[in-house]
Amino acid sequence: MREELIVSGRMNPHIDPQLEIWEWHIPAYLFLGGLAAGILFFASYFFIKGKSDEYPTAVKLAPIFTPLLIGLGLVFLFLDLKHKLYFWRLYTAFKIESPMSWGAWTLMAIMPLSGIWAALNIKTLFPKWDWKFDVVKDAIKVLEDYKTPIAWAMMILSVILGIYTGILLSAFNARPLWNTSILGPLFLVSGMSTGAAAIIILSKSKAERHTFARIDLLLIAIELFLIIHMFMGFRASSQVQIDASAMFLGGQFTAVFWVLVVGFGLLIPAALEVMEMRNKKVPYMVAPALVLFGGLLFRFIMAYAGQMSRWLY
């Protein structure tokens, strides 16, 4: 038997008795970032493919909301900072080894691009929109000509944004649950799935909804594979990762993860999407709403459980 105690009474706030340095802000931001990345990816991809008229929600309508999503995410990130007045220090350095630095710069680049994209398409949402000032009108006219390069930049940056939300966590070897390179792709796929779900909710065309339901099905299948693959990796890894995965395989997160995230967030929406594609009468909002809920909960669980997992010595 072995018992290890800190006998000098260490009780550093947010560290002891158990790490909780990141509260709701970070998972909420990871969700918003992934969602925005997903929407922007589909918008730029289908624009480049020349399918703007076929999928107007994906290319024009949904991206209008992304500057708001990213902006809200940035507010959450700012609220999470403890030394707030120095936040600008993020932009006086670029640290190639720090995923957070990558993320900060990616956000700096994708936020204005998504704003430009939203401005170019604002008339889909508000047909009577008027920019009032000639300067803005001229600028919009100029930017219209650069839609394709903007779309390419947005597509690449959206993949970086989506995958970095996972890499951010996977870079911490101190937290065994996060320390798996599957997490980057898993968060990317999950973010794209929530993006597709948002497009389905906003879309008024049945054909567009069906296309995105099919895309979402594929993404859900990949997600399920990656989740199982992740736990297989943990089970075959070192003791600390076996312990970390045990929280999900019999431990305190088992029910909430497998029932709510995997069941309600992946399997049930997948089943509903299959039913809808076979023209069974299913309210089409249910599946994408569940996907969004599952994506949000997945990030919360990973953020909290990850901080609980640790090395033993």
Binding site: H14, I15, L19, I21, L81, K82, K84, F87, R89, L90
Partner: peptide, 21 residues
């Protein structure tokens, strides 16, 4: 001190929990 933004990344990254805000 005046470069730190208090993001907590280093705290999460330390396997010894040696840091605090």
């Amino acid at each position: 001190k005046n470069k730190c933004i208090g993001c907590g990344a280093c705290i999460a990254s330390c396997p010894y929990d040696a840091r605090f805000t």
